[in-house]
């Protein structure tokens, strides 16, 4: 054994010195997330609001009691699930479909079409949502103008519960499916070409190649994207906030939108914080369950 073998690949793989590589990300996460979260949890046990801005005191579980006693939180939890699952399933399916189509060998104009498909994601969501809110307008929106061409009645998109959910989910699909397309496509691109070639030589058709080659290689990515997307969508408040503001009534509020409403529109910071904490507990329990079930946790660790 010569000297250089001491620095072999195996040596690189062991030792606590390797923590050095994780130090930047640990520092960043602790600084950006851990302190504010701790402080946010603390706020949820105070009466911090506009009226008690400089004079907030600890009030124990008052905010949590209020939140459950009122009963409004139960339908809002259900609505948050509708929002999250309802948005996520079409996004992932469409993303997967489009990525598969674009990934076919010999697909012409892939670059151009892919770029066009990515555009909605590249556009600032805040801008797109204001544009969509105009498009859904009952009297002047372009969507109802299209419907009337086909002799269909105008729909009060944002003022009735079911149309409002439809509008929210379609808008959110538009905002996010390009992201899933890009995610899945880039993971499919990482599959060595000869795997497909080998399968082809074996006489596998396109569906078999998907199930035998593509799917095993990307199912981890799909699970990871799905779970991350679940968390992102659960917390994503701009579409609801800008399009319906939680209405009609309270029928399209999600937990995050309601918490934001309490904190930033009604300046009731402590109640908003309590809502956020409840929301995160529910989310974390579901996410950990999903991580376990999909074995993404094993992939991550």
């Amino acid at each position: 054994m010569d000297f250089s073998s001491k620095f072999s690949f195996k040596n690189l793989k062991s030792g606590s010195i390797n923590y050095i590589y994780l130090l930047p990300i640990i520092a960043l996460i602790l600084f950006i997330f851990l302190y504010p979260i701790t402080y946010g949890i603390y706020i949820s046990f105070t009466n911090f609001s506009l009226q008690h801005f400089y004079t907030a005191t600890l009030v124990g579980f008052h905010n949590y009691v209020l939140l459950f006693k009122n009963g409004l939180i139960y339908p809002i939890i259900l609505q948050t699930l509708i929002w999250t699952v309802g948005s996520l399933v079409p996004m992932v399916l469409l993303g997967l479909l489009v990525a598969n189509i674009l990934n076919q060998k010999g697909f012409k104009f892939r670059g151009l079409l892919f770029t066009l498909i990515l555009l909605p994601w590249a556009f600032p969501a805040f801008i797109s949502l204001l544009i969509w809110s105009g498009m859904w307008n009952t009297s002047f929106g372009i969507i109802n103008q299209f419907l009337s061409v086909f002799g269909l009645p105008r729909i009060d998109w944002l003022f009735k519960t079911v149309p409002a959910w439809t509008a929210l989910i379609i808008t959110n699909l538009w905002l996010s499916f390009p992201y899933y397309t890009a995610f899945f496509l880039s993971s499919m691109q990482s599959i060595p070409d000869e795997f497909h070639e080998a399968a082809k030589v074996d006489g596998a058709n396109i569906f078999q190649r998907f199930s035998k080659v593509t799917w095993p290689a990307i199912k981890g990515a799909i699970a990871f994207a799905g779970i991350s997307g679940f968390i992102f969508t659960w917390n994503n408040f701009y579409p609801i906030y800008i399009l319906t503001g939680g209405g009609p009534g309270t029928s399209t509020y999600s937990l995050t939108v309601f918490a934001y409403n309490q904190a930033f529109d009604f300046y009731n910071y402590s109640l908003g914080a309590a809502f956020s904490v409840v929301s995160i507990i529910i989310l974390a329990v579901m996410a950990i369950f999903m991580l376990k079930y999909t074995k993404v946790l094993e992939m991550l660790t």
Binding site: D156, F159, K160, G245, G247, P248, G249, D265, F266, Y267
Partner: peptide
């Protein structure tokens, strides 16, 4: 006034519902 604003925004929605 802040609460009044939100109340009226909801009221408008309710009027929309009333209409439909």
């Amino acid at each position: 006034m802040n609460y009044y604003y939100s109340g009226v925004a909801d009221m408008h929605t309710e009027m929309g519902l009333y209409y439909t």
